[in-house]
Design a binder for these strands. Sequence first.
DNA 1: TCCAGAAGTTACAACGTTGTAGAACGAAGG
DNA 2: CCTTCGTTCTACAACGTTGTAACTTCTGGA
Lengths: 337, 337
Amino acid sequence: MAVTLRDVAELAGVSFKTVSNVINGYPHIRPATREKVERAIAELGYKPNLSARSLRSGRTDTIALAVPELNLSYFAELASFVIAAAEEAGLVTLVEQTGGDRARELALLQSPRLNRTDGLILSPLGLGQEDAAALAGPLPVVMLGERTFDWPCDHVTMRNVEAARAATEYLIASGRRRIAVIGENEAEVMGSARLRLRGYREALAAHGIEYDERLVARATLWHRADGARAMHDLLDRGAEFDAVFGFNDTLALGAMRVLQEAGLRVPADVAVLGFDDLDEAAYAIPSLTTVDPGREWIARTAVETLLSRIAPGGADAEPRTRAAAFAVVERESAPPA
Amino acid sequence: MAVTLRDVAELAGVSFKTVSNVINGYPHIRPATREKVERAIAELGYKPNLSARSLRSGRTDTIALAVPELNLSYFAELASFVIAAAEEAGLVTLVEQTGGDRARELALLQSPRLNRTDGLILSPLGLGQEDAAALAGPLPVVMLGERTFDWPCDHVTMRNVEAARAATEYLIASGRRRIAVIGENEAEVMGSARLRLRGYREALAAHGIEYDERLVARATLWHRADGARAMHDLLDRGAEFDAVFGFNDTLALGAMRVLQEAGLRVPADVAVLGFDDLDEAAYAIPSLTTVDPGREWIARTAVETLLSRIAPGGADAEPRTRAAAFAVVERESAPPA
DNA sequence: TCCAGAAGTTACAACGTTGTAGAACGAAGG
DNA sequence: CCTTCGTTCTACAACGTTGTAACTTCTGGA
């Protein structure tokens, strides 16, 4: 039913292998032959069967991208960049959602689905050191997120600790002293939450401000609703603070909403600072001061790194870790000093 | 290098076809044989080669989802639901971004990439009636968006006209008379913009309010920045209005931001109403009154529709159109009467 | 005891492509 | 005119799976 190489070959009056050669840019073909073949291809509307091509050649020209959830804006924007970068390189992207769940992350790594893929970009939340073996397979994997475990794969990451420290110091520099944080999650062994908390604590320590556990609000998932809930917790328990650092923008925005519902003014009474620099942050009211973690660079670099792994001989290189530059983006919710 | 059926067969001491039968759930297999085979599969960590399976069987267990951009929150949330629904049905989702560009939409429809796919869910912006031929191929396509053209495929849609009319009537009922709209795009022959504008005009007409072109602001893309720009246009040209209806939430949020920058109070001076009910809308300040278009239902129904097309014999059925229920979600930016 | 039919297993041929090896052809060099 | 060597094209064999059809081996009824 579908048009095959043989159909094209017959119409062009050549062997089907010659058609294959034309398609694959084999150099030694007479211009006249090439033209005949190309005309036949156009006439029949031939499209190569990619399953057959993959089976034979081993290449799929497809990558997988696995994120916790696509309706977390950070991951949506990340995915958008990854897909665009992959497309530029001629690759299609298959998107998986893991829910940030260790079991689902592991299941994905074992899944035969990935064998229709040349590599995986994974943004893990649940995996730990004990899962290193699951990554040892032949499939190239690029991890998004700090190299906190000794996993045998490339990492493309943001500078969580440094950025969180810079963000906190920005608040301190603007005169805030009682800085609450939202997003701590002790279940996460070594993910962003822990690293950003560390940066926060380093900043406090560097400025002689005591770490106060009462200012730390938990949030396992990082939706707006979780930020709102966390802020309610803080308010309910009578915590006193003059700034809030949300471990991501959605948490910060959820919290900011609750602050204003409670009659507190942002930034007059409480400054709010986020992390991610979502498109949304610039349009919030007040606009959200936040950390730009270099999302686009991360996406492009992840694709690039994966491509160089996939390339012949690329599998042998030592695992690399590359970190994006970050910047505090000054806006209304936390004005500079 | 990879483990194949033959390796498993050898270890289990059966023919490789028997292994295939076990994997495919063929009923007539002795329990003892099945167990031997399963043990061998587990021991070798066998995973079927999906390219080979696709080549032979014609099925790919993959669907493609094409949206304009994943960093438009509406499409991110939609994609999240589609991927989840597909996964429940055992399908993997391949995500494409078209930029809402007719040429790229057409290119995708022609692309050999889709032959590694059992079907496509497409959210078109640029296609028109003249492109019907491009849809006539063998690949099942489910369109998201009103059946404004006579395309030979299924449609799963929101009730754009009715919902926009209801939204406008909601504003009218709350006492607003000068209602600006943001998002008109005459380049789009018959997309959401046109339909929502029609609903708006119907509502005005039904209440004896004259349609005033000066209250209509254009926006080709529907990012927050476009909403902000459109609102600047309205303000710059001295348009007088007591309400704004953004054709989607991001436009409305961008506009709301500019309104407040200009010193106008929402909703006291100007009511703002959006369309989409993004997660974000509930946390905006003020929270955004909007239309819930039934996004999750649309996503699930699109996957379901595509599945029934893919199923044997499904190709023959008449094209169906199914529309989601909608609801105006009352929030602060446009309080009820 | 034999036979029919079901249960259980296997052999073989595709699916459409690319890699390898080599055949046919022509041009250049002696 | 023969040899050599590139150019151009072709034949054949995979890649790993599933569909078809056939072959055994059982089971139960006459």
